[in-house]
Nucleic acid binder design. Structure first.
Length: 295
DNA sequence: AACACGGGGCC
DNA sequence: GGCCCAGTGTT
């Protein structure tokens, strides 16, 4: 607000300036979308803000939650603001058995919310329900004795508070075997170097650098690495690494074949050289250097 | 519907 | 130190 007090200021700002202020907050696409939205409002809408939730939701970065929050708080529109807190409060109040992150359960929460909005001040009402979830109707150890609506809470009457909200069971991360090919050479100055390639634009580790690698999904249910992939004098590993949806097991194999010359690849000093590594590689680098040194 | 984004809170 | 959280956009 200090740097860009008006929509016009934000619209006129350089992307770098916006990103610099956002630094450290995460979710950088939000800053880009905010900037884009300011430009749309300033340049295509003559500086006029949308006046209702449906119109707000057409702008980049504004989804149902933000559209409802802005419209109810700023324009007194009686639309429910459904965030994680409200999902919890409402699913307990009405003891909703459907998963709140599925269509049916979402709709049930939304419908119940409509009955909860105080039309005298929709913005305050929405903020109150969110705050109730944040401070009283906590995920664990909710303070039911301090809750102003405990009397009418169905989950409390039925003893299902700790079972609400129901969420769709998330599927187990898939097991993946990764074999990195470590090509080595002795550089012009006599330093040992390894071959590093830029990752593709999309998919895992995009924008980063890594050793060339193959990735094999393990058959469903297979937890242990197949014997053929297990430890051998030729490869360093196994290295376990967990991502949001993948459970990786990695090996690093020094290969005899010459490094594949390609655009976006380069030789990096094993000792000093740095690259934009994925965390998986970053964390094993010291041990990997050690292992190569002993070979 | 599944997944990525990136920090912070919590155990 | 690892696990989970939660809106939005993309696939």
């Amino acid at each position: 607000m200090a740097a860009f007090p008006t929509v016009q200021d934000l619209a006129a700002a350089k992307t770098d300036a916006v990103m610099a202020l956002w630094k450290g907050l995460g979710y950088y696409s939000r800053a880009r979308n905010l900037h884009k939205t300011a430009q749309i409002i300033a340049e295509e809408r003559a500086g006029q803000l949308p006046q209702n939730a449906a119109d707000w939701a057409t702008l980049p970065g504004i989804g149902p939650y933000t559209a409802a929050a802005i419209s109810s708080i700023c324009f007194d529109e009686a639309v429910p603001v459904v965030d994680g807190n409200v999902q919890r409060v409402v699913s307990r109040l009405f003891d909703i058995e459907d998963a709140v992150d599925r269509k049916k359960g979402k709709a049930a929460v939304e419908t119940a919310c409509l009955a909860l909005i105080d039309a005298r001040d929709p913005g305050k009402s929405n903020q109150a329900w969110m705050e109730l979830g944040a401070l009283v109707c906590a995920p664990r150890s909710p303070r039911c004795s301090e809750c102003p609506v405990a009397e009418g809470c169905l989950a409390r009457q039925r003893g299902t508070v700790s079972d609400r909200p129901v969420k769709q069971p998330k599927k187990a991360p898939q097991a993946v075997d990764v074999v990195f090919a470590v090509h080595l050479q002795t550089g012009a100055e006599g330093a040992q170097q390894w071959w590093v390639e830029r990752r593709p634009e999309s998919g895992i580790w995009s924008q980063l650098e890594a050793f060339p690698c193959t990735m094999d999904m393990r058959p469903k249910g297979a937890e242990k690495a197949p014997d053929t992939a297990s430890e051998s004098p030729e490869r360093f590993g196994p290295v376990a690494h967990i991502l949001t949806h993948r459970k990786m097991t990695a090996w690093f194999e020094v290969v005899a074949s010459p490094a594949p010359p390609c655009d976006g690849g380069r030789w990096v000093d094993v000792k000093e050289g740095t690259a934009n590594w994925p965390r998986l590689i970053d964390k094993v680098l010291p041990a990997l250097r050690d292992w190569i040194g002993k070979k």
